[in-house]
Amino acid sequence: MTETLAAASAPEVGASPAPGPLIHARGLTKRFGELTAVDAIDFDVAPGESFGFLGPNGAGKTSAMRMIGCVSPMSAGTLQVLGMDPIADGPRIRARLGVVPQQDTLDTELTVRENLLLYGRYFGLSRAECAKRADELLDFAQLTERAGDQVEHMSGGMKRRLTIARSLINEPDLLLLDEPTTGLDPQARHLLWDRLYRLKQRGVTLVLTTHYMDEAEQLCDRLVVMDKAKIVAEGSPRELIERYSTREVTELRFAAGVQETLDGQLEGLAERIERLPDRVLLYADDGEAAVAAAHARGLEPETVLVRRSSLEDVFLRLTGRSLAD
């Protein structure tokens, strides 16, 4: 069973019909003493798909990832990874996972290439095999010129690329990425997304956590929105936006002190209205119409922005808070 699974999802083979989910979780729970970090969540991840956990810091995403990665035992529920039990088969499952942790765990005393070589050895690969794959992965991560450099002196973006390259050394069936671009500058993020997109195209199954809605929209076929240890919604980015938001959003910013005096003047301008501390959001499929309606009522916002709905709006609708909180 597990052998056929591995074959079906191996990157080289491509997407043949999958016999079952790579991850199967029901009532998955993680408690630390009094605190419940993950509260009875259900989800499945199919071979070849790119699956995301979206939520603010502290929502329980990392705890969920650590359970899937078989480094943190669950407190209750059922969890199967690659058809096996994480408690009984931890090392066997981990042999087929690639893991990109939130915090870098590179060996700073070693060079870029040595990091790849030794990591391959942890999977029991021969030295020759490690060397071959290391060279391919250096190329993939665009680090070939830096192969002999000490990791300590590299930029954050390069370290992340190396960490991703390292996670691929065992040709994993499932790649787990915990906040892969947090802390990187925009250019480094786009470079990283490009690499991850290529992996996705090759058919590698990705599971990632993020609190960036743009990252989730770029990379995830399907995602779950997490808040306060629970899953609050599930679907593709497009489905979630259709279900929980309008096509367009109008953002109105008023001069200081004006917004508080607007009682009753906004009602009926849009399907739904959200008041944030610094601006008002009008949810209506036709943004320009909402702007016209606002002007017609004599409202004089300082700035007006009409934009498409995003996962940020979905999150706001579901939790009443913004992702950045």
């Binding site: 990665g69 480094v71 090392p91 066997r92 981990r94 042999a95 996972l97 893991v99 942790p101 765990t105 590179l106 060996d107 990591y119 942890y122 999977f123 029991g124 390292r166 065992n170």
Partner: peptide
């Protein structure tokens, strides 16, 4: 922790 993410 990196080692522990592998079969080790």
């Amino acid at each position: 922790h990196a080692m522990y993410a592998t079969p080790i």
